[in-house]
Amino acid sequence: MNQEKTIVLEHRCFQGNYRLIKLAAPTIGPLVQPGQFVHLRVPRLENAVLRRPFSVFKADDVGLSILYATVGLGTEALTSVAVGEEVSLLGPLGTGFPGVGKDKFPVLVAGGYGNAALYLQAKVSPVKGVAFFGGRSAQDILCVDEFEALGWDVRVTTDDGSLGAKGLVTDALDSWLEGEKDVASASLELFACGPNGMLKAVGDRALGNGFAAWLSMDRNMACGVGACLTCVIKRKTETGWEWARCCKDGPVFEASEILW
């Protein structure tokens, strides 16, 4: 984990309401593991005391990129940051995805731009399996070609049917699971990122079918390093539950650990 002054290399509209920012981060970039995040100080947001956490989309020796949507004050202010500006980052933070288990068939499930947090996992996975991407409409489905280029079989669903099959991403997952009954459930391993409701639905399917599902959870954070105990979630224990820190113990948790 490091604190680094990074320089904006690229910043542009990616698609619709989604933007891509690429930062020169030669210290943090090479350290990023799939599923980890960075904590970014938004320039010129002077009366905001908190950083903003972002999943890492891509990372290499030069730096890293973030795919984000403008959803609040922080991301709105971020849109004005120009190429060449300095941005302070803490990272890489948190416990990301484990490697795909031996002899496991990986399945990705993403809601909207949640698939950005799955990209590095998709890249390093020795087996390229099936990726289910869901969103409200066509403009919320991102990076299909990028995942296909890595060798993944991408299946798209949208709420309004404007791209792919009409319905929820979990509908598509359910029909696929039904059709793959001959594949033993135990050989599947899911990796998911998206809205809370989708993560719970994916987790329920994993628990019901006896396979593992690694869920990237999203909670409001303050410190990002495990100190303030803002972003806690309930994790099951032998005797009940305990608070686990989304920023440090997560953001990735196995579905069976989470007490919803």
């Binding site: 009366n47 905001a48 005391v49 908190l50 909670r219 409001n220 303050a222 303030c228 105990l229 803002t230 972003c231 806690v232 979630i233 608070w243």
Partner: peptide, 14 residues
């Protein structure tokens, strides 16, 4: 400790 949400950012503070 308390249930969540536990913090909320405000103008020049939290």
């Amino acid at each position: 400790g308390n249930e969540t949400p536990r913090t909320f950012e405000t103008a020049s503070g939290m």
